[in-house]
Amino acid sequence: MTGTAAVLGALSVLALAAGPGLAGLVQTAKARLQGRRGADPLQPYRDLRRLWRRSVVDPEGTGAAYRTAPAVIAAVTAAAVLMVPLGADAPRWPFLGADALLVVGLLATARMAGAVSAWDTSAAFGMMGAARDLAYAVSGEALLLGTLLVAALPAGTTDLRGLWAAAAQAETWRTPAHWAGLLAVALVVLVETGRQPIDNPDTHLELTMIHEGPLLEYAGRDLAMLTWVAGARHWIVMGLAAGVFLPHPSGAAAGAVVTVAWLPVLAAATALAESSQAKMRLGRAPRLLASGAVLTLLGAVAWAFGAGL
């Protein structure tokens, strides 16, 4: 491992702690857009510390699926955080590799663990959220994979470091495929962070919940882990969007700095997107995601026609 790789690896590990801050940034920006002062971006850390000191609750009638779900979800999410590309020289974790499709798979595993824990409690709101989450994931996964496809075509690889390097190349920006991916990845950010118009993380209406539904039963450290996961997902998808689709210099130090610098920008953009529209009706959101996926297909077709190169 070279020195650069070591530094980038250390950065990835630091990223494990940075996710909640990114979510806090979105919340602060949203509060500002709503005419409020709001809590500062560090609030999620205070919440996590508070939750960590509280007791957990095991609802009667639940078993291992409920009890292990937060740990499983946190573990796979942590693995996905480590994989977020911060540079072409980033380390390939010997136990994970650096393949983009694995990130998709890890997110899906977390989703499944959440759904299974919802079935374990069999409480209506958890079930409702899990069912919606999985239903949205049908077109959501197509969108995500389509996005990675149009990134992988110009890059010639699904290695996240290769995708990062490709986004630093001017030629990549001349392909319609990349631009299609750039548009589609905006939707990916909204859907994977559970934000409007797909989901509303601040909702207090139990009948409309998606990601919040299965959380309703959890307390204490379980909830702390799941809250951390919600923040870490911001880092994962915004990091993917920045590393794979947004422009950055190809040099190791400058590239990593610019990639990370994109994240607050994306957080602010997310807050703005969330504040400017209502949540979509159930059943319509999957169609929006599917149209995003079709957009990426057009990008792939354009690539196959050799357009732009």
Binding site: R36, A39, R46, L216, A219
Partner: peptide, 14 residues
């Protein structure tokens, strides 16, 4: 109220 770090939560578990 949120600027105090206070939040109204959806579930008594939280």
């Amino acid at each position: 109220l949120q600027r105090y770090g206070f939040a109204i939560t959806a579930s008594p578990r939280h």
